[in-house]
Design a binder for these strands. Structure first.
Lengths: 225, 225
DNA sequence: TCTATAGTTCGGCTATGATCGAACCATGTC
DNA sequence: GACATGGTTCGATCATAGCCGAACTATAGA
C-alpha cells in the first residue's frame, strides 16, 4: 500500500516551526535574505542557515546569490499551492496564529499569494473571468480565450515572455476554500493592479488594500459583480 | 509576518513516516482498523495507537467505533486534497517511493483519491464535463448545471442525500498536476463506474483498472474525446 | 590593507518524540 | 465464567534534530 510519492520528507521539512515561518514569510512573494528569514523564524543566523540549506535541498526554495547577499524565494507555484492547502486545513480547525485582530479580515479579503492575488478578491476575479468566458478550462488546463486575450490587450496588461511557466493556473485558497488565479497571468494582473494605483501592499504583511475608487475600477475592468 | 494559519502543526503530523504511510493508505478511501494501519506503517500496535490518537487530535482522521473495532478514515476532502498537493511536490522532485514498476503508470492513469476518481481519467472526466457545460464554475463554487443534472438522471447515477458535503469540489491531482472532480458527485460517479462493471479496483492498491469495453462505455457516457 | 557585514561550518548540549515491552481495559465467542 | 482478540496506557529507552557559541570564509567599501 505504499505506492505513490514520498510525502513524509516534504511534510517534515514544512513541519518545523522555524522553517514554516520562513516559508510563510516567503508567501509574500518577495525574495528575502538569510538574515531577514532568521528574524522571521526567531532564530540565529546559524540555525537559519541550516534550515535554509535543508529547504533548498528539498527543492522548496531556490536561492539567488547577489553580491554578498543570498536571496531566497519559493521554488514555484506548486509550493505556494501546497502551503495554501495546508493553511486551509489549519484554518479549518481554528488554528489561526494571530487572534482575530483587524489583520485577519483584511487577509481574508485580499492578500498576496506568492505572486498573485488571493482571498475573496482573488476568488471573485477567478470566478468572474470564467463566468464571462475570458478563461476556460480546456483539455490543456486553464486557457485564456480569444475574448480574454482581447481584454488583456485592451487594458494594457503586460505578460512577460518567460514562457516556461504556465500562463494560467489554479491555486486553492485557504480562506475562501475556492480556487483563484495563479500562473503568469495571475502575476501580471496583480502587477497591473498595483501599477494602476488601485491597491497597495500593507508593508510587512501579505495584505493587499484596495482604495475605494481602485476597488471599483478593478471590478469594472474585469466586469465583476 | 506571522499572520495566517499555523501550518507547522499539521505538517509535523504528516511528516512522520509512520503517520504518512497511514494517511497514504487511507487515501484508498477505505476505512481501516488500527491494526491494519499498524501493518501499513510497519510499527507495533502501541505505536500505531499513539499515532492515530495524534492524527485524530489534529482532525486529520475521524474514527468510528464498531464493536471492538475502531475504523479510521480521512477527515474529509480537504485532507485528501492536501495530501495530493504534497504528493505533487514529492513527485516533482522525483521522490517516487516505488521505483517505476508496472504500478506507477497505472496509478497515473486511473486511481482512487479518497472516494473519487483521480489520475488521467479523472482529469479527463473533469475537463470533459466542464467543456460540455455539465459543470460550471459559478460564484458559489463548482455547480452542476441543468444539462448536467439531466445527464446524471439519464444515466441513473445515485446521489446520496447527505447534503452537508458540497456536491462538487475540485481536487489537485499529483500525477497530472491538474484538477479533477471530487465532492458528492465525484464519489457517486466512481461508485456508478464500479456498479456498471466498467472498472475494478486492483486489490491492495489504489489503482482503478478499466476494461476495454468499460473504458469505451465510460468515455461515451460522459462524451469524452 | 583594514574593517564591517553576510553567511557557513563545527562541536557540543538539550529536548522532543518515536519506539516497544508489559500490563491493562473492552468486546465478542465458546 | 474462561478465553481470545482489538486497542490503550504507562514507563523506560534511545535517536534524531534543533539550537547556539565560537571560529571561519567571502564580499563590499573605504
Amino acid at each position: 500500500m505504499k505506492e505513490g510519492p514520498n510525502i513524509a520528507r516534504i511534510a517534515t521539512l514544512i513541519g518545523d516551526p522555524g522553517r514554516a515561518n520562513m516559508l510563510a514569510a516567503l508567501m509574500s512573494g518577495k525574495a528575502l535574505t538569510a538574515t531577514e528569514l532568521a528574524g522571521e523564524a526567531g532564530v540565529t543566523k546559524q540555525t537559519a542557515s541550516a534550515h535554509l540549506a535543508k529547504l533548498k535541498d528539498g527543492d522548496l526554495v531556490v536561492v539567488e546569490a547577489q553580491g554578498r547577499h543570498r536571496y531566497f524565494r519559493l521554488a514555484g507555484e506548486e509550493v505556494a499551492a501546497t502551503l495554501e492547502a495546508l493553511m486551509g486545513l489549519a484554518a479549518a480547525k481554528g488554528q489561526l496564529r494571530t487572534r482575530t485582530g483587524p489583520k485577519d479580515p483584511e487577509l481574508r479579503h485580499a492578500r498576496v499569494c506568492y505572486n498573485h492575488l488571493a482571498g475573496e478578491q482573488g476568488v471573485r476575479l477567478y470566478d468572474g473571468m470564467l463566468g464571462h468566458g475570458y478563461l476556460r478550462l480546456g483539455s490543456n488546463g486553464l486557457d485564456l480565450t480569444q475574448s480574454g486575450q482581447e481584454l488583456v490587450g485592451r487594458l494594457g496588461i503586460a505578460l512577460d515572455g518567460n514562457s516556461r511557466a504556465p500562463l494560467c493556473r489554479e491555486c486553492l485558497d485557504w480562506s475562501a476554500r475556492r480556487s483563484h488565479l495563479a500562473g503568469r497571468l495571475g502575476r501580471a494582473i496583480l502587477q497591473f493592479t498595483f501599477e494602476q494605483g488601485w491597491a497597495k501592499r500593507v508593508e510587512g504583511t501579505r495584505i493587499v488594500r484596495f482604495t475605494a475608487t481602485g476597488g471599483a475600477a478593478f471590478a469594472r475592468a474585469f466586469k465583476l459583480t
